[in-house]
């Protein structure tokens, strides 16, 4: 079973509060914000490796992003993926979910023969959950999202359990298919020292827009139906009264305030 795992490098959410707007250009300034592999993408890689251990085949990690995204790919290789593909080109910049999914689909068709595509269910930076289903549509394959358990009845049929509000849904997928997994599906392995040492001997291929066979107007900002119209800081408007001291006293004062505001 050949599996492609789509991953993304994202800013560490613990540093989100340090992301500021440039007062003049109103653009995002994120210098100095550490980058990590999107957390649930590790679960997707783990799921791929477990399937590979059962059915054999090849696990490829794929991402689109700036040159430093190779760090996330190297982490995937250290976990045990066999090959990595980095889509890196200025022509890809500014892509929304639609253009991102379109570009990933073009690359998978071109470079990565597959039976299964796995993604994390969402990213911590934008969290739209849109790239997975869009990618499936562009690859013209069936899909299931937010999957917490995969049961391969045979190598070609997967019974996926997807989490929905107050329950779950069981979906039968014939491969080739795309599945987005959530954190409940497994516990991702930590790369071993040996795994990290093997990264250098594994293939990390880099492709630009030229190799994709896609017209430039389909890529990046040009290929994105949506645009950012404006960007602004947001602060909640609150009364900001703080109390400290004797617990009984502050509790009584807080409740009195809520009463005064007709909050209770």
């Amino acid at each position: 079973m050949d599996i492609v795992v789509c991953i993304k490098q994202v800013p560490d959410p613990d540093y989100f509060s340090q992301i500021v707007l440039d007062p003049v250009t109103k653009a995002i300034r994120r210098e100095g914000i550490p980058l990590i592999m999107n957390p649930v993408d590790r679960n997707a890689i783990e799921a791929a490796l477990q399937l590979q251990e059962r059915f054999s085949g090849k696990v490829t990690v794929l991402t689109m992003g700036p040159p430093q995204s190779r760090e996330a790919l190297e982490e995937g290789l250290a976990m045990g993926a066999e090959e990595a593909v980095l889509l890196c080109d200025r022509a890809f910049a500014g892509a929304d979910a639609f253009a991102t999914a379109y570009t990933l689909a073009a690359a998978i068709k071109e470079f990565c023969p597959f039976n299964l595509v796995l993604c994390g269910s969402e990213t911590v930076d934008s969290g739209t959950k849109m790239v997975g289903p869009m990618l499936a549509e562009f690859l013209d394959i069936p899909y299931a999202t937010n999957v917490r358990a995969m049961n391969f009845v045979t190598e070609g049929i997967c019974l996926a359990e997807t989490a929905i509000e107050n329950g779950c849904m069981k979906v039968e997928l014939g491969l080739p298919a795309l599945i987005t997994v959530n954190k409940a599906i497994n516990e991702p392995r930590i790369p071993t020292v040996l795994g990290i040492m093997q990264v250098a001997s594994k293939k990390l291929l880099m492709y630009g827009a030229n190799g994709l066979g896609v017209p430039p107007e389909k890529l990046g900002l040009a290929g994105s139906p949506t645009r950012v119209a404006s960007l602004f800081d947001f602060k909640q408007k609150r009364r900001l009264e703080t109390l400290r001291g004797d617990p009984q006293h502050v509790a009584s004062k807080a409740v009195a305030k809520l009463r005064e505001w007709h909050a209770v």
């Binding site: 969290g127 739209t128 849109m130 289903p133």
Partner: peptide, 22 residues
Amino acid sequence: TEMGEDLAPCIAAKVGTGLTAH
């Protein structure tokens, strides 16, 4: 919802338009 988030992106991709989440 879980179903809405599963469905809407596929429709957007089919008709070739943009989608904004949340």
